[in-house]
Design a protein around this nucleic acid. Structure first.
Length: 292
DNA sequence: GCCCAGGTGCGGC
DNA sequence: GCCGCACATGGG
């Protein structure tokens, strides 16, 4: 387990490192995590059960099992080797949805800042003398005052609408969780009656991967599209690759679906993990080198 | 100044 | 269906 890779991969926001500990909120527990001699150390307040932490860290998921015993391809093997210990965390669905609705077209730093400003009027939790703020739950969110001048535009109303839908049961995460990947994805993105404003192809994949138990979900943003073209060219149909080279980086929903199909049939349930490793790789490794 | 940042909704063909 | 644009702001 490598907590630096895990928390620096960009999968989760509002965590920070202090004195060698990773600090953030798990459920309602202010939590500190670090590894030592191969074991995971936890401090939390109020004290979290071992089960709760295991659930958050997905310690029941074995990546060897997701691979199904087959090796994927050479580049992927070395990628997974380079970022060995990176784990996909299981986030609270509402916090995750909020984070990724906010995330559209912002830098990671800006996303963290916006979420921080939303949390700034919420409950303060403490552990070991350090303090951090909870994000509001769906019903509390409706009472939070809108932060002044903090990047949000129309996104603020998307968040409010999603919060209302959760409150009145129109949006039911457990129901989506129970669906197979492609049905769940379509219900979020395509279906008129269940579409959530602010959730497009990429945000839907984030929610499915990080909160709704779909390890094959493979969110594709600009970094990932560059990574796919550079290292997995055969998964990107020629017409789409040409388009990406010539005009901007935006894909239509249909094009996103086409690439996503190829990616999922290649990586299977290892997809989500590969995606996080590739994301970290593209953002940190020097260009032109196959590995970090 | 200008471009880019974990995209998405909308109105125009 | 696809295209072009607006959306808000800060850092390089």
């Amino acid at each position: 387990m490598n907590l630096d890779f895990t928390f620096e991969s960009g999968q989760i926001f509002q965590w920070r490192k202090a004195d060698g500990w990773w600090l953030g909120i798990v459920g309602t527990h202010a939590t500190m995590l670090r590894t030592e001699d191969g074991s995971l150390l936890v401090r939390s307040n109020p004290e979290a059960s071992e089960e709760r932490i295991k659930e958050f860290m997905c310690l029941n998921v074995r990546y060897d099992d997701l691979a199904g015993g087959r090796s994927v391809d050479e580049f992927t093997s070395s990628l997974l080797q380079d970022y060995r210990g990176l784990r996909i965390l299981k986030q609270d669905p509402w916090s995750c949805l909020m984070s990724y609705i906010v995330s559209a077209s912002l830098s990671i730093r800006a996303i963290d800042r916006v979420l921080g400003s939303i949390a700034s009027s919420c409950r303060e939790l403490n552990v070991d003398g350090l303090s951090l703020r909870e994000l509001p739950g769906p019903s509390d969110f409706l009472n939070v005052r809108r932060p002044r001048k903090r990047y949000l535009g129309r996104k603020w109303s998307y968040l409010r609408q999603a919060a209302r839908d959760i409150d009145d049961g129109t949006l039911d995460f457990d129901e989506i969780r129970s669906l197979p990947y492609d049905v769940a994805w379509s219900s979020l993105v395509i279906a008129k009656e269940s579409h959530v404003m602010g959730v497009g192809p990429k945000v839907a994949d984030c929610l499915l991967l990080f909160s709704l138990d779909k390890p094959e979900a493979f969110p594709m943003d600009r970094w990932i599209m560059r990574g796919l073209q550079r290292h997995y060219g055969w998964l990107v149909p020629e017409r789409i690759a040409t388009k990406l080279r010539n005009e901007g980086e935006a894909l239509t929903v249909r094009e996103y679906e086409a690439v996503s199909q190829n990616v999922r049939s290649h990586f299977g349930k290892l997809g989500g993990l590969v995606q996080e490793c590739l994301f970290l790789h593209m953002r940190t490794a020097r260009p032109g080198r196959p590995s970090a």
